[in-house]
Computed example of a mutant assay.
Amino acid sequence: MHFTGRTWRPPYEADSCIIELTSGCTWNKCNFCSLYKQEAFGLTTLEKFEVDLQEIKSLQPNARRLFLTGANPFALSYETLKPYVLTVRDYLIKCQHIAMFASIRDIKNKDVWQLKKLRAMGVNGLSIGVESGDDTTLALAGKGYTSYDILEQCRKLEEANIEYYFVYMTGLAGKNNGYRNAINSARLFSQLNPYFISIDALTLFSDTKLYTMAQEGIFIPAGEHERLKELQVFIQNLKIRMHLFANSNSNFYPIAAYLPKEREYVISEIEQIMETFTEEEMLSYRDGLKSLG
Rank of each mutant, 00 (worst) to 15 (best):
Pro254Lys: 07
Glu230Tyr: 00
Val266Arg: 00
Leu210Lys: 08
Leu259Asn: 09
Val233Gly: 09
Phe166Ala: 02
Glu163Gln: 09
Ile240Asp: 13
Ile235Arg: 03
Arg187Thr: 06
Tyr168Phe: 14
Ala256Arg: 14
Tyr258Met: 06
Phe196Lys: 06
Ile197Cys: 09
Ala222Gln: 00
Asn176Leu: 12
Ile267Pro: 00
Gly171Leu: 00
Asn176Ser: 12
Gly171Asn: 02
Phe252Met: 08
Met169Trp: 02
Ala186Val: 05
Ser198Phe: 10
Asn249Tyr: 14
Arg180Asp: 06
Leu192Tyr: 06
Asn184Tyr: 02
Leu231Trp: 04
Leu188Asn: 02
Phe189Cys: 04
Asn237Trp: 08
Tyr164Arg: 01
Leu192Thr: 03
Leu172Arg: 03
Leu192Gln: 01
Asn161Lys: 14
Leu204Thr: 10
Ile240Ala: 14
Asp207Tyr: 13
Glu264Ala: 11
Phe205Asp: 08
Ile199Cys: 05
Val233Gln: 14
Pro194Ile: 04
Tyr258Asn: 07
Gly171Trp: 00
Ala186Ser: 08
Ile197Asn: 05
Asn237Gln: 12
Ile235Tyr: 05
Glu269Thr: 07
Pro260Gly: 10
Lys209Ser: 15
Asn176Lys: 11
Ser198Trp: 09
Glu226Trp: 00
Lys261Asp: 09
Arg263Gly: 02
Gly217Gln: 04
Lys209Arg: 15
Phe189Gln: 01
Gly217Ala: 11
His225Asn: 11
Gly223Gln: 08
Pro221Arg: 01
Thr170Val: 03
Ser206Arg: 07
Lys209Thr: 14
Phe234Ala: 07
Leu238Tyr: 04
Ser185Glu: 01
Glu163His: 08
Ala173Trp: 00
Ser248Ala: 15
Ser250Arg: 10
Tyr179Lys: 07
Tyr258Val: 06
Glu226Pro: 03
Tyr168Gln: 04
Asn249Asp: 15
Met242Leu: 14
Ala222Asn: 00
His243Tyr: 15
Tyr164Ile: 01
His243Lys: 14
Tyr164His: 01
Tyr253Ser: 09
Lys239Thr: 13
Asn249Ala: 15
Glu269Gln: 07
Pro260Glu: 11
Ala256Gln: 14
Asn177Gln: 11
His243Leu: 15
Gln215Ala: 11
Ser248Met: 15
Leu244Ser: 13
Ser190Cys: 11
Lys175Ile: 05
Leu259Pro: 08
Lys209Cys: 15
Ala246Ile: 00
Tyr165Thr: 01
Met213Asp: 12
Asn184Trp: 02
Glu230Val: 01
Lys175Arg: 10
Lys261Gln: 11
Gln236Ile: 11
Phe252Asp: 00
Glu262Arg: 07
Arg227Met: 13
Asn249Trp: 12
Thr203Asp: 10
Leu172Ala: 03
Phe234Cys: 10
His225Leu: 10
Ile255Met: 12
Thr170Tyr: 00
Ile255Glu: 11
Leu192Ser: 03
